[in-house]
Nucleic acid binder design. Structure first.
Lengths: 262, 262
DNA sequence: TAGTGGTCTAGACCACAGT
DNA sequence: CTGTGGTCTAGACCACTAA
C-alpha cells in the first residue's frame, strides 16, 4: 500500500480538545472544500488513513462516517469512499400547475424530463380504495373512504420522488381517475372535465431524514434528507378535490415559489 | 444494573442476513413507533442493551447511532439516550409578505411569535458592506458591492433560523436600511418609503444536511436537516431589490405556499 | 488474488450527570 | 460515588470489486 502524497492532508494536533476522529473529518472536509478531492474522486482508503494519522481503524471509520452523515461522501463496498457528486437537480417552477401545462397530452413530469434530456419513468403504480386517515379527512373535508393513487418517479433510472394522490370517492369512483392510466393531462385534466374547475393549490413543505423504507424506495445515500410536500387542490367552489403526498430526494430538487407582496 | 423488562424488546434472529446492529436498531425503532417509549423517554442504556442482546458495546452504539442519524433519538452525555421530542413548529404562511403585515410596527417574526405565546429574540446582528459573490450579482443584477444584514432568530431561547439579506448599495447606502435597527416594519417598509414598491417575491427551497458551523449556530441535534431558502424581492419595475438567504432548522418549520391553477 | 469497506469483539480510559 | 455516554485500541472474519 502506497503512502499518501505529502501535503494532501495535514497532521493531528495532540494538544487539541477536539476528538481525533473529528480532526480527521475536519481535514478531509477541508480538503474536499479546497478541491483537493474532486466530485466523484476517491478518498484515501481506511488503511491509508490509519497509516497516515497513526490511529486505529475504528477512529478512521468514525471520521469517514461523519462525512457521510453530512452528505459529503459515500462509501461503496469493495471500492472505496468517494466524494459525493451532486446529482442534476429537478427544478419545480412556481407555475408548474398552470393551465397550459395541463393542455398538453403528456404529464408534467414527462414533458419536463424530456425537455432537459432525461429519460423519465413512472412505476409502482397502485390505484385502490382505502379508508381515510383522520388527517386526510381533515384535509379533504371528511370522506370515509378515498381513492389512493401511488406511484414512483425516476429520472434516468434513478428514483427521485414518490407520490400518493388521495381523492374523495364521490368524485373519483367510476371515472378515468380510478384507472391506472387516467389519460392525457393526468388527473387534473380529468377533474376539470368532471366539472371541478381548479382554482388553486396549497402546498406544505417540510424536510426531515428519511425512514428506512424511504431510503430503500428512493435509493437514498446516507446524509440525504427528504423534502415532504403535501399539496391540496381546490376547485372554484372552494372544495378540496385532491391531496397529494409527495416525498422527494432532497439532493435532486429545488422548489421555486412566487409570493405576492400585496 | 437491572435487566430490561421482558417483552419490551424482542430477540435477535441469528439466521438473518441483516446485521446485528441493524436488527437492534429495527427493534428500538419499532418500539418507539408503537409508543413503548414515549417522546422524551429514556431508551435502555448501552449496558442494558449489551446485556439484553448479548453483544458488544460497539454493536449497540452502532445501533443507537442509526436512530440518531434518523432523527429519532438523541444522546445526552452522562444521562442517556432519549426519544427525540418534536419541537413546536413555526408555520410560514403563504401570505407572510402581504402588505398588511408590513403596516404594523413590529417585525413579522416578533408578531408571529407573540401570537403563539413564544418569546422571540434576534441576535448576531451584523450590518456591513461586502463584495458581491457571482451568484449574488446574478440575482441582484450585478452590483460590485452589497449591503449584508446578518441575523439569527430564536424562539424561547432556541435558535431556529439564520438569515442574511443582501441589498444593492445604490439602494441601501446611507438609508435606515444600513442601520442595525431599520425601524418599524423592517427593511421592506423602508424600501417602499424609498420608492421601491414591492411587487412580488421568488423563493427557492432546498433541503440538505447542515455544515458543522450551521450545527453550531442553530444548535442542531444529529439527524436534523436544514431548509435553505433563497428569496428575491422584486419591485414594480421588475428590479431585484433584495436577496435573503435563510437557513432554517428543519424540525422547527413548515412552509406553506399557494399556487395558482391558471 | 489483493484491496476495499462491513461487521463484530473485548477490552481500556475519559468526561459528564446526578445522588 | 455510580451510571451514563464519548473516545480509542488491536485485533478478527466477512463480502464485495476489480484486475
Amino acid at each position: 500500500m502506497a503512502a499518501l502524497p505529502p501535503g494532501l492532508l495535514g497532521t493531528l494536533d495532540p494538544t487539541s480538545d477536539r476528538a481525533v476522529f473529528r480532526q480527521i473529518a475536519d481535514q478531509l472536509r477541508e480538503a474536499i472544500a479546497k478541491g483537493r478531492f474532486a466530485e466523484g474522486a476517491k478518498l484515501p482508503s481506511e488503511a491509508e488513513l490509519t497509516d497516515h494519522f497513526g490511529v486505529s481503524r475504528m477512529t478512521v471509520r468514525n471520521a469517514l462516517s461523519i462525512l457521510q452523515s453530512e452528505g459529503l461522501a459515500s462509501a461503496e463496498h469493495g471500492r472505496g469512499v468517494f466524494v459525493r457528486p451532486r446529482p442534476p437537480v429537478r427544478r419545480l417552477a412556481s407555475d408548474r400547475f398552470a393551465q397550459r401545462h395541463r393542455d398538453q397530452g403528456k404529464s408534467g413530469f414527462t414533458v419536463e424530463a424530456e425537455a432537459v434530456g432525461s429519460r423519465p419513468e413512472v412505476d409502482s403504480l397502485v390505484v385502490r380504495e382505502e379508508r381515510s386517515t383522520p388527517e386526510m379527512s381533515a384535509r379533504l373535508g371528511s370522506a370515509r373512504k378515498v381513492l389512493a393513487r401511488r406511484r414512483r418517479y425516476l429520472l434516468d433510472g434513478k428514483p427521485v420522488e414518490t407520490a400518493t394522490s388521495y381523492l374523495p370517492l364521490d368524485i373519483a369512483r367510476g371515472t378515468p381517475i380510478a384507472e391506472p392510466n387516467p389519460g392525457p393531462g393526468g388527473i387534473y385534466a380529468r377533474l376539470e372535465e368532471l366539472g371541478h374547475r381548479l382554482d388553486h393549490f396549497e402546498e406544505e413543505v417540510r424536510a426531515r431524514m428519511p425512514a428506512p423504507d424511504e431510503v430503500k424506495t428512493l435509493r437514498l445515500a446516507p446524509g440525504v434528507p427528504v423534502i415532504h410536500v403535501v399539496r391540496t387542490a381546490f376547485d372554484t367552489d372552494g372544495r378540496a378535490v385532491e391531496v397529494c403526498d409527495t416525498v422527494m430526494a432532497a439532493d435532486a430538487y429545488v422548489l421555486a415559489y412566487r409570493l405576492p407582496a400585496t
